[in-house]
Design a protein around this nucleic acid. Structure first.
Lengths: 253, 253
DNA sequence: TCTAGTGACGAACAGCGTTCGTGTCAAGTA
DNA sequence: TACTTGACACGAACGCTGTTCGTCACTAGA
């Protein structure tokens, strides 16, 4: 979406205009800088002062382009959503495409450290969020789902994806806070810690937990996300009207 | 100004016998006070200084009983989880009981303002969280689900409940920040605002959103939560092995 | 009665988001 | 070309946060 609206190179007029005293602050520049800090140092390190410092100015200068930190987070989040790539909708394959959408969205959110913590922290109404909502809504409605239920499904699916990414980002933040070197190292230690705690529970009072520790720690974040997605999609498929509402194919089933 | 070093009312807990010089701080008292502040003024107002102020002391005094704010939030959250009441597990009615569990949990979280924001903010491992996990895990395993899948289902269900409550608590926080008098007033205005925004979108670019605004705002938080819960339960039911013995229902769809 | 130790706590540190008042530069107008 | 205007940059400050240090009062044990 951003590729057709922005025109990055106007080379005949602006480039040599280099006023170092006035660094040409803009909302886009602030958002870009904020996202860079978020990716490099995490959400906890993202402060107005930090953004201003990177831009070589004071925090007060940002408020001419951004109403506050909340708006900055929303803008950053929507910028990230712009990376979500969607195939052309094909309602006949709605289930497959819905899964692809969820996994793509999850992939993008996971790729930007703990940006998901900003996702749930505000109600996203940016242009990219709207674009994604339109896609899912259209897919479900064209597949035959009543609009009211389609909006419910969109809402729940979004909540699930954001919630899972949010939870994952918390682990990421803890890893960062603990100065752990690698993701695998941190995760291994964390899982070990939880497993040890579960095993230490009195078996007569918590037989199911203490007796199934290995089963509880068997699956990682990826498998957990897919399992919940499978549950939601199965639930949706059970509610979807059986025959496609298209005029041509009346399949017997 | 600011000479009011006298603490006017400690209405939550008045030490009747002990000397006022030593207010007998304890972890329980701190957690109780923190929960009271959370309920009365919201999570944003819950600070170490605020807790200390209510207890008539300084913030440094709290650190002898609580390692920091994170631990305090975890303790408060687990205290809230203690309010969840569970019936005796009956695996034959696992679906019904699982729904009851989810709604009870949701009810308790919603009853404590934005305590849910503390729920997702930390990984709960308190005694009450373990108790609830044991209940759900046992219910699903005894109903015939493999332990590994049962732990997946528990994980996803917990995420969904917490995520939904978290989202709701954000609205609560915004209502509080906007000094809105009543919940209904705030919600009505918010929904109106979103609906107006959706209607203002160009119909040729966003036909499904702008054409179904009424359907999108039809259902409130309660209905949305139940719908997602239905999806998850339906997905689980489809994966559950058929009942072992007496009663089997032929699905009529 | 003396001593040891534990918990309470004032003060301070470093950082946060945000606002105010002032300064300065670029563009518009005469 | 000279003047005006207005938007933007920004230093400083306010009030807040979580947390730590050093000290001090008090109580329990000898």
């Amino acid at each position: 979406m951003g590729s057709d609206t922005d025109v990055p190179p106007p080379p005949w007029r602006t480039p040599p205009r280099k006023a170092q005293r006035r660094p040409q602050l803009s909302q886009d520049l602030i958002v870009e800088t904020g996202l860079a800090i978020l990716d490099a140092e995490g959400l906890d390190a993202l402060s107005m002062r930090r953004v201003a410092q990177v831009l070589g100015t004071g925090p007060a200068s940002l408020y001419a382009h951004v109403s506050g930190k909340d708006e900055l987070l929303e803008l950053i989040y929507d910028q990230v959503l712009g990376e979500v790539r969607l195939p052309a909708p094909d309602p006949a394959r709605w289930q497959e495409q819905l899964r692809a959408y969820a996994e793509e969205m999850h992939r993008v959110l996971a790729g930007h450290a703990d940006v998901a913590r900003a996702a749930l922290a505000g109600i996203p109404t940016g242009p990219n969020a709207v674009r994604l909502a339109e896609y899912v809504l259209g897919l479900l409605i064209e597949a035959g789902m009543p609009p009211r239920e389609a909006s419910l499904a969109l809402d729940r699916l979004t909540l699930y994806i954001s919630g899972d990414a949010f939870e994952g980002s918390l682990h990421y933040a803890r890893m960062r806070a603990a100065d752990q070197p690698a993701v695998e190292t941190y995760f291994h230690r964390y899982v070990d810690q939880v497993a040890t705690y579960f095993r230490s529970l009195p078996p007569e009072r918590f037989p199911y937990i203490s007796g199934n520790v290995d089963a509880m720690i068997a699956d990682g974040g990826e498998a957990r996300f897919r399992y919940g997605l499978d549950l939601l999609l199965a639930g949706l498929a059970a509610r979807m009207p059986p025959a496609p509402a298209d005029h041509r194919e009346r399949g017997g089933r």
